[in-house]
Amino acid sequence: MRVEIWSDIACPWCYVGKARFEKALAAFPHRDQVEVVHRSFELDPGRAKGDTQPVITMLTKKYGMSEAQAQAGEDNLGAQAAAEGLDYRTRGRDHGNTFDLHRLLHFAKEQGRQDELIQVFYRANFAEERSLFTEGDERLVELAVEAGLLAADIRKILADPEAYADDVRADEREAAELGANGVPFFVLDRKYGVSGAQPSEAFAQALTQAWGERPSLKLVGGSDEAEACGPDGCAVPQH
């Protein structure tokens, strides 16, 4: 079974939702047969690279709330994250463009390190004092190396603005086609969608339902005793 997760590194509910989903997946009897793929979704696609501002400032301008309201929302998110065992800085975080992060995540998928990289990015954005957005490309190189990728590969991608750009845009078009106007958005076997950072119990129910409705193979025609090869070798013709 395949689970696709549309998300953005700048999205706190994606950070929390990933932890809740993984808790459900860890308890799922068929977890070893579930492939998880992270897909791209920018919450702020119009923001220029290098245009960084404090999260509280961004929230007040984007949603028209007061600083007190914005800070209360961050405090609530911090409590929700803590309940999932996640570190979350409720003060002093920055907000910026995430397009390069998504490009690197597509490269990491090719290298089999996508989940490691997205987890490193989430931790850097939500838990660490250093900004993910103000230290330039070398900060991303450092984090990618931590996730098991090669620095030279990362520098090459960051130096080419079009590297994996089409992959990011394709993910975002597909999200729109699926009706996802917010993240996190989970799609199970292209049959079921789960929107938002639902409780782990909801993810567990979705996994069970999607698994139970997977098509089973029905054998047709011929004899069940026809010669074949298996784990113990090949049948030897007796006639």
Rank of each mutant, 00 (worst) to 15 (best):
Y63Q: 03
E22G: 04
A79C: 05
Q53T: 10
E142C: 08
G222M: 01
G96H: 02
A26Y: 09
A27F: 11
S131G: 10
N76S: 14
K218D: 13
L25F: 11
A151Y: 01
F126W: 02
E74Y: 09
F41L: 07
A79K: 15
G46Q: 11
A72V: 12
L105A: 15
E4M: 06
A19M: 11
F126R: 00
S200W: 14
E138C: 09
F203K: 03
R169V: 11
E129P: 06
S200K: 12
E135P: 04
P184R: 00
T60Y: 14
V183Q: 03
A19Y: 05
F186A: 09
D8L: 13
A163Y: 00
V120M: 01
H95K: 10
K23S: 14
R214E: 13
G92P: 08
D51W: 08
V16A: 06
A175P: 04
A24N: 04
V220A: 11
N125H: 15
R190Q: 15
Y192A: 14
Q198T: 08
G221N: 14
S216E: 14
A144D: 00
R173V: 10
A210K: 02
S223L: 12
F99P: 03
D153C: 08
R91V: 15
A197S: 10
D166H: 14
C229K: 01
H102K: 02
D100F: 05
L219K: 06
R155N: 04
P237K: 04
P12M: 08
L104Q: 01
T208A: 15
I9Q: 06
F41E: 03
A202F: 14
G73E: 11
C234M: 09
R169T: 09
I154G: 01
H95M: 13
L132H: 01
W6E: 01
L101P: 00
D153R: 02
L59N: 05
D75T: 12
V236W: 08
R123G: 02
A163P: 03
A108K: 00
Y88S: 06
L150E: 15
D44F: 15
R2A: 04
K61H: 14
V37E: 12
A127N: 02
L117Y: 00
D75P: 05
T98V: 06
S195W: 06
R20Y: 09
K49A: 13
M1K: 09
A68W: 07
K49G: 12
G196Q: 04
E42W: 12
I118E: 06
G212Q: 13
R173Y: 09
K62W: 13
S216P: 10
P184S: 07
P12C: 11
G193M: 13
S200V: 09
K18V: 05
L105D: 01
E227A: 15
E110P: 01
G96M: 10
A159R: 02
A72Q: 15
E213P: 02
A79F: 07
D8N: 03
Y15W: 10
V16Y: 07
G193P: 10
